[in-house]
Design a protein around this nucleic acid. Structure first.
Lengths: 116, 116
DNA sequence: CAAATTCGTTTCGTTCCCGTATCATTTAGC
DNA sequence: GCTAAATGATACGGGAACGAAACGAATTTG
């Protein structure tokens, strides 16, 4: 059975989750950074700087900088591709998985509490 | 019937909507700006700078600047409170309503297409 | 009516993100 | 081997957002 949302429910869901994130003290990621993080965790590897840039329609430095920032937060990590040492493979971390699990829980809770 | 999402569905929904927004050429709002916009459109008026700052746990200049930015985009507008001229009332606009309607449509479409 | 308070804005200095252009390293082609 | 191409990182200048503090205007208080 498909997930069917009314327009107001959709907005309310986004509002509550966003408010929870802004209000809380979780890592403060930009829209792009969060999108990059989700892409790495949801789409099949391997992920490269170039691939992510093309996938999200942004320039390469955007990806490099996002990896710097989120790498420092331990949400992602870089690894050299040994088969072609020009490439950098972006990998998940335990901390990143936990962060996204917590986020998913927030979404689920807010969705369940949505008025009909 | 409550909206019941699996963790993976929640992440996937966020990912697809975020990707659509990053990829598209819609107004580029920060997380905070978008949250402010949703608050103004979803919660009962009147909305003041001070009220929004307290509601979202941010400083007042954050609200003032967000109103500058989003006001220039015509997503919101300011009005003096004539009963107490120290206050500024934040109001919706037609453009803002349209923008959020389009956004809600994106969420609904992505939710409906979610795998089980 | 003078002083204190409230409200939104502005200023200041800082930090972060952006796109363009360029760089170093590695690989591929001849 | 030597040049050309590919990949990711970096330098640079510009713009936007940040928090803290100070400010002007309006209102409330004593």
């Amino acid at each position: 059975m498909a997930i069917d949302l009314k327009a107001e429910q959709a907005l309310k869901l986004w509002h509550e989750v966003s408010t929870a994130m802004v209000h809380g003290n979780e890592p403060d990621l930009t829209q792009r950074q969060f999108t990059i993080l989700l892409t790495v965790y949801l789409e099949p590897p391997p992920h490269t700087v170039r691939g992510l840039a093309a996938r999200l329609n942004v320039t390469k430095p955007v990806i490099t900088r996002a990896l710097d920032t989120m790498g420092a937060m331990k949400l992602l990590k870089r690894r050299r591709d040994e088969r072609d040492r020009r490439n950098v493979i972006i990998q998940r971390t335990v901390e990143g998985s936990l962060f996204l699990e917590t986020f998913a829980d927030t979404v689920r809770t807010k969705a369940r509490e949505l008025p009909r």
